[in-house]
Nucleic acid binder design. Structure first.
Lengths: 209, 209, 209, 209
DNA sequence: AATGAATGAGAATTCATTCAT
DNA sequence: AATGAATGAATTCTCATTCAT
């Protein structure tokens, strides 16, 4: 999880040394964990610093305020997510069966989702505070765009507007099914992934099958 | 919205006079509005009292703490929701086309959903603070039970376990599609409701069609 | 010093009970003392609350922020100062010798000045932080206006522009002479008052003598 | 403004190389500007280092703490001020008209005053924090001593005690009149200088005329 | 010598909750 | 019962100062 660079967010100061980047990622990791555990609003900046094993002063040397931590975290997630989807959709899969495509995408996203509990708090925060809402919207839009492009390639005849609706719907369905697993216990995680594939296949077959 | 009685939650003192119940509902209405606007965590009890046009002291005469307001609000929503679904599923519709059934259920829920912005904040709070999570789980379970019963009636041959999965999935899909409308602008609300019907029909047809 | 009402400043909540007004004045008294001792910037709101024998929460129930305490304090001083000068200049003294008039004004102001060490910190804060500057300007202007009116009555032939310069100069001289006493030890206080009279008489004689 | 040596203050380490002295003066220049802009208390040592285009670490290599920067700045001002007054009072002007003498002194001081906004913040800080107070007292005493000597030369018959009072008063009047100009807009600067001469002449004529 | 990351005590402000009136 | 003033722990963020590199 601790990487070695990209964190878009508006850092107060871009670290120049490797040590700085490590700190930033430690802070984001700590924030991710805490947000997943207690929700963004209930996380204190001091708690983040403590879990990141740094001082509150250091935290504020990199992040101008609490919200910026959220934004940076989100940016890091999106960047990571992009890499994951890129991998899955790397080669031309236009000839492949829809079911196989869905299988791979769902598996990849489920893995990512499960590996990043913090992502969920951000991703599903749309109904919380305005800050969270913005972050969630940002993330959603990024995913929809990806899907829209994919669908366009697979079924060029689909009108742009319809494509937007289908992409948005797919994203929301994915999101819902992943949440279904995440909020329940282990066996449900399996079921959720399986059912996600079923749902998406039945929904998408008539559209881009 | 301001009713005259049932509010399950752990009230500190069950009002004995009509005036008391009115107060309680005023407070819940105020809480609902504020939570929808700024998220549960960002709402202050003082703000709730103010909007409810009562005093903070009076508020604490009925509710032992902030969380209890959330619970009472949730209880009121579930109770209301139950009435709504009861209406839709009142008579025996086992002979009816699945599409028609879905149409009615989605319409009913969409209406309820749209009429109660506060409900959304509670319903989708699963990834926020533990308090919100509990409330959301509670609400979800109530709905799943309803659906499960319905599906059992419609397709008795569906194994219990499968039925649970399908009911839970349906609920999450509904939830997702409603959110898809709620977080975007008006035209999307329409599209979301329409698409919700499509998604559910395609998903449920093979199961209970 | 603890009065029973007027405090113009933008209170967050105008006290409705006598107890409330007492609190506000306690807070202002505490602030005045501390500001005199350590300067506005070095005074903490917690220290003010402590010296006022109230809680920090109560302080913030009346004052929206630290700056508002300064403004309220300044307003109270000006109001008080106005009462003092009103007394001295109550009746028509146009026929009186300039020396006598100056004697009375200087004595009155010296007494006020000495009784309110907090006033000095505000009054002389023009070169400190912007907040203090504003307060000081405010106070100065109020005094200049008073003097200008007085001079106009005494010597109507003095051109308005010249009158403004003379009034402003008088105020600055007063201010300087009072400060000369305040910043040194007791015997200097006496000397300063005496010298203030000398300075003002020599300066004003040719103008409005 | 950036000179090449004397800075009395308690430097942590007297620079040995020219580069060191340059650093010290850069820091003092930066401090002067910032103090003039926002008041001593609101200036951060980091901000000083930044404006001085050096590092916070280097700053602390020369100055043991924040207060020492103030003291060194003050010392530099006094040293500079001494040079200025020396120039004006260089030759024996005992035969000259008082008005001419005052003209020259006021002009010289007004020029200095205007050229060093940082000096004002220090000079008028008597009512702020203890630190500032000490600096201001220091500066005032230096000026009073100068004036006292001058008056003694011009009117040897003036008793020592009276001379002290007159010198102190003169200094405070100067200070006040300069402030009167500094805190207002340009036209007032002119008027203030002019009026300063009037005030001093009328006050001093009977004493040392 | 120079740098700037790191530290953490301390400051302003909020807010759930209590309790005297 | 109702009111709203009072409380103070907790929170976000700053800044003087140190010290490893």
């Amino acid at each position: 999880m601790t990487q070695t660079e990209p964190v878009a967010g508006p850092l107060r100061r871009r670290p120049t040394q490797a040590r700085g980047w490590r700190r930033v990622h430690q802070i984001l990791d700590a924030a991710a964990g805490l947000i997943a555990e207690m929700g963004y609003d209930n996380v204190t900046t001091n708690a983040i610093a403590e879990r990141a094993e740094t001082s509150i002063g250091s935290l504020y040397q990199f992040f101008p305020d609490k919200a910026s931590i959220l934004h940076a975290l989100n940016a890091r997630y999106l960047e990571h997510l992009e890499r994951v989807t890129d991998e899955v959709l790397a080669l031309d899969r236009s000839g492949e069966a829809l079911a196989d495509l869905i299988d791979d995408v769902v598996d990849a996203l489920a893995t990512f989702h499960h590996a990043h509990p913090g992502f969920q708090a951000v991703f599903y925060g749309g109904h919380g505070s305005p800050e969270l809402g913005e972050a969630a919207r940002h993330a959603s839009e990024a995913i929809v765009e990806r899907l829209s492009a994919l669908y366009g390639t697979r079924r060029p005849s689909l009108p742009a507007e319809r494509r937007a609706v289908v992409a948005t719907t797919s994203m929301e369905l994915m999101k819902a099914m992943l949440a279904m697993g995440a909020l329940r216990d282990e066996p449900w995680r399996q079921r959720a992934a399986q059912e996600a594939k079923t749902v998406l296949l039945r929904y998408l077959e008539p559209e881009i099958g």
